[in-house]
């Protein structure tokens, strides 16, 4: 049981690290928001699922699942609101300079 938990958490940690690298490397707000959605959608899912597996079958597992569901419901809303505000305030997406 705990081997599976460790595997899940490590996989989630990998995606979190990739998202952090993306935050550093990508050029503008819009692209960075993609990296952040990677964190939220897969990294957090895998880490929290690993922790839930570690709990075994109990009430705590259900509670962690509630948090997971909440992250999935709320984070698209935040990303959408931020991107919309950025678009409306006149920010244009980054483009590679055409040679």
């Amino acid at each position: 049981m705990s081997a599976l938990a460790i595997a899940l958490i490590l996989a989630g940690l990998f995606f979190l690290v990739v998202a952090a690298i993306g935050m550093l490397r990508l050029p503008d707000v819009f692209t960075r928001c993609h990296a952040l959605s990677l964190t939220d959608s897969l990294g957090a899912f895998l880490v929290l699922a690993g922790l839930a597996v570690y709990q075994g079958f109990s009430l705590n597992l259900l509670k962690i699942l509630v948090v997971l569901m909440l992250i999935y419901l709320l984070n698209p809303v935040i990303a959408h609101a931020t991107i919309r505000a950025a678009l409306r305030s006149g920010l244009r997406p980054w483009r590679r300079e055409s040679p």
Binding site: V29, R32, L36, T39, A44, L51, V67, T82, A86
Partner: peptide, 23 residues
């Protein structure tokens, strides 16, 4: 560079904080 980057950064920190709390 822009304020939206900062908002995104804070958002990412709060997701990490949620994970940290459960951990």
């Amino acid at each position: 560079p822009t304020i939206y980057d900062r908002v995104l950064g804070l958002n990412g920190i709060s997701t990490k904080a949620i994970i940290l709390l459960v951990l």
